[in-house]
Design a protein around this nucleic acid. Structure first.
Lengths: 160, 160
DNA sequence: ATCTATGCAAATAATTTGCACAATG
DNA sequence: CATTGTGCAAATTATTTGCATAGAT
């Protein structure tokens, strides 16, 4: 995320809190700043560490109390990678329709957007009598890199 | 699931265990019988209760130890409804490509299959250099029933 | 000054694990 | 009868909550 966008998202988050009549605290601002400072998804624990790097007074409880609010704002989304840990993805503001492709062998994650999938999802939703609000598609499979060459970039990183 | 199919799936599960060189125990058979006795998804705790109804000696630990094996067999799949609880869906044998549509208001869940989605998922996977193995699509939205009439079947059930 | 938000630590919930014994192949 | 699978209870991990106090409006 470029700096301009980063500022925009942080401001949007702060405005969301203000709009709900909630207070601005240094801890909340640190959590917001931390959450959108990265392009990577993170766990609650990861967000705690990033937020503490900005404001050491941020506690685990505060992170857990503010995460549901950020989800409600729509600026952050839950991400299930299938390993039992709850992750959060800050990239939905810029890429609201992106999905995830995961290699079961090397655990590489590729993000993709596709207009056809998007249209089809909306079409199916309407056919079933729904107004879609939140769509999540996760495909797990085997990447060619590992399957064809017996090795791949991610795999080598892991073995290091 | 009709009786014929139920027997088929249970046999497939037992054969999977045998094929892995694992032993047949009354607890495992109870867990298999319980898991595929229903059309509904269930939690680990729910499976425990169903299995105990068949064989009271089944313990929670055994359920947790056998669940990963059933997932590995492909006869059972994880299902994330977004409420933080891990569910398991036994219907993937009969409907391997089904997906879930969830109403955020009344929590109604509709299952659907769609050939176009299926094709598109495969197409995208190949384009990204993957052989797809496991696809999960979950759409959350608002059902017309509740949106238009201010009430719906599920909603009334909940309020009872 | 009022009242929300926080830190801390205890509580809860879901899952995993060590160990002695039971039961399969 | 050798070895795997199990029950039990304790351990671990992730998350939530009660309470006294700090701090925003």
């Amino acid at each position: 995320m470029d700096v301009e966008n980063y500022e925009k998202v942080c401001t949007a988050a702060r405005n969301f809190f203000i709009g709900k009549g909630l207070r601005q605290t240094s801890q909340r601002n640190a959590i917001i700043a931390a959450a959108f400072s990265t392009q990577e998804y993170f766990s609650a624990e990861g967000l705690l560490h990033m937020a503490q790097a900005i404001d050491p007074s941020v506690s685990r409880a505060t992170v857990y109390r503010n995460l549901p609010l950020l989800l409600e704002s729509g600026l952050l989304r839950e991400l299930d990678l299938g390993d039992g840990i709850q992750y959060y993805d800050p990239k939905f503001v810029e890429h609201p329709t992106h999905h995830h492709m995961i290699c079961v062998d090397c655990e590489k994650i590729i993000e993709f957007e596709d207009t056809n999938i998007e249209l089809l999802e909306n079409c199916i939703s309407r056919r079933l009598g729904f107004s879609p609000a939140n769509k999540m598609l996760r495909i797990k499979g085997h990447c060619d890199e590992l399957r064809l060459h017996g090795n791949c970039l991610r795999r080598r990183e892991q073995e290091t």
